[in-house]
Simulated scan of single mutants.
Amino acid sequence: MTLRPPDGGSFRFDPGALCLELLLTGGPGPLARFEVLDTPAGLLDWVAASRLEPPSLRLPPVGEGDLAAVREVRDALQRLTVARAHGRPPGAADLAVVNAAAAVPPLVVRMTAAGEREWAPGASVAGLLSTVARDAVELFTGAHAAAGRIRECGGPDCYLLFVDTSRPGRRRWCAMERCGNRHKVRAHRARTQSEGEERCPQV
């Protein structure tokens, strides 16, 4: 997904899972400044940009209650993912929110006469949330090693979370062109300053 932070510019970021893409819409605390789920358009824009397949999901009119439900699940997922990234136990209330969302029937795909995939009629925000919540259950409990590779970006004041899919499992940054390069610049400045101090004649 293409992210456009408030400080300007844009960069590509792949969190590695549908449920983690939902975390890019804002959240509690310092994440509130990124909030986009305060309007139906914000949710629909996220749906169109997400990895949902097929991408052409049509939802009925989205109300304030729908938006509040999406934000509740998103915020619970945010806290659960941060806890997993830092080796902390999950919060019982957050687990209950995600499990309740996953218990609802998810979105359903079907095959068209042309052999293509499409969403079956009856799609709803509740079904969307169930699909996202079930993706989270699979991420956190699946047999693959992804659950042990959930990371938080190492950049200062960067809250992006992702699944480290690199072969060595040493990914530290949301994106090299953003926090990775900023780290390199800071390290270079610190090294240059240190070398300058070493060359400075002692008085």
Rank of each mutant, 00 (worst) to 15 (best):
T2K: 07
P5M: 09
G9R: 11
S10M: 09
F11I: 12
P15Y: 07
G16T: 09
A17E: 12
C19R: 07
L20G: 05
G27V: 13
P28N: 10
L31F: 06
A32P: 02
R33I: 14
E35R: 15
V36M: 00
D38N: 14
A41C: 01
A41S: 13
L43G: 02
L44W: 03
D45V: 08
A48M: 02
L52N: 04
E53T: 14
P54V: 08
L57K: 05
G63C: 06
E64L: 12
G65W: 00
A68L: 14
R71F: 08
Q78T: 15
L80P: 02
A83R: 11
A85M: 07
A85C: 03
A85Y: 04
A85K: 02
H86C: 06
G87V: 12
P89E: 08
P90R: 11
G91M: 03
A93E: 15
A93P: 01
A96Y: 04
A102E: 03
V104W: 00
P105V: 09
P106E: 07
A114K: 14
P121R: 13
S124H: 01
V125P: 04
V125H: 01
A126N: 03
A126I: 04
L129C: 14
L129F: 05
T141K: 02
G142R: 09
A143Q: 13
A145K: 12
A145C: 02
A147I: 04
G148H: 13
G148I: 09
I150M: 00
C153E: 02
D157A: 15
Y159S: 11
L161W: 00
L161Q: 13
V163H: 01
V163C: 03
G169L: 12
R171A: 10
R172S: 01
W173E: 03
E177Q: 15
C179T: 07
H183G: 02
R186I: 06
R186V: 12
A187Q: 14
H188I: 08
R189W: 07
A190N: 07
R191M: 09
T192D: 00
S194L: 14
E198L: 15
Q202D: 12
